[in-house]
Amino acid sequence: MKSEPAILAEGLQKRYGQTQALAGLDLRAEAGTVLGVLGPNGAGKTTAVRILTTLLKPDAGHARVAGLDVVRQANQLRARIGLAGQYAAVDENLTGVENLEMVARLYHLRGRVARQRAQELLARFDLLDAARRVVKTYSGGMRRRLDLAASLIMAPPVLFLDEPTTGLDPRSRLSMWDIISGLVSDGTTVLLTTQYLEEADQLANQIAVVDHGRVIASGTADDLKRQVGGERFEITVARGGDLTAAIDVLRPYSQGEMQIEAERRHILVPVAQGAQQLAAVVRDLDAARIPLDDLSLRRPTLDDVFLALTGSTATVEPDNQQQRGAGRPLARSNT
């Protein structure tokens, strides 16, 4: 049997009034891999996820997930996917355990199995202590974990995560990354959307950069970074310091062409594994007695990707998108 990709979308289109949310979107994720869908606000990430999870019908194009057509076989498909949407969809007035048991029962699990499954997931997501508290009292990170737990009730082979870490503090974000990596190493196919290149880099095998409803670049994180320029040191030599000497010191570290702006006394050095070389660079510059105003290690951001791919920065749309978002616990926090 020829193995079909776990997620395959071809030419998806969706229009809302004047807005073309999706303009012929193609996506593909092989079974057992992570596809990162990277894009700014309004790019169409959520719309794509909603179509792939059967919540929305496309105007044109078609998609198959886990071998099933998202429109014609929607009902069967729902038993095989998990969805954790952009905003945690948990019932604030129920406790954690009640939320999970309700979802498990709606998946038509037997009562005893439903209860057992809820306990397992609460334990796995570190929510046992809070299990009998109403969700209203949960932090944003806890809600996200509970929402993810709900989407994992059936241990679905394909999982959709719409901006799983937006609005989380750095620690919760790391713990979410751990959880996702764990799922993937167990064989789950994951599609996750994100606004952070770093996150896609950490988690995804393949990345699709989406803008205005279509994919404008795709490949591995390394592919993208080659286009964008990867990590780099940004160094500003203090007035009176010898710029040429500094360039000589930095040359061995450079993985490509250094960019030099003489009048700003600014040097950009493309590097690999910059963090590990930071100390050595500082030492060498110090030994050469070159005074610095500034030295930093920069990783490419979504903006850099867009700059490289489209020549303009990611256009952040005014947040007119949905009143549905108003009053939800997880306010969108865009950087």
Binding site: R50, T54, Q76, R78, L83, A89, L106, Y107, R324, G327
Partner: peptide
């Protein structure tokens, strides 16, 4: 329920739509 995204959650489950 609609505003809080719960109806989306329900619709993503293989449950009876009428429920």
């Amino acid at each position: 329920d609609l505003q809080r995204g719960l109806i989306d959650r329900f619709r993503s489950l293989p449950m009876a739509k009428s429920a």
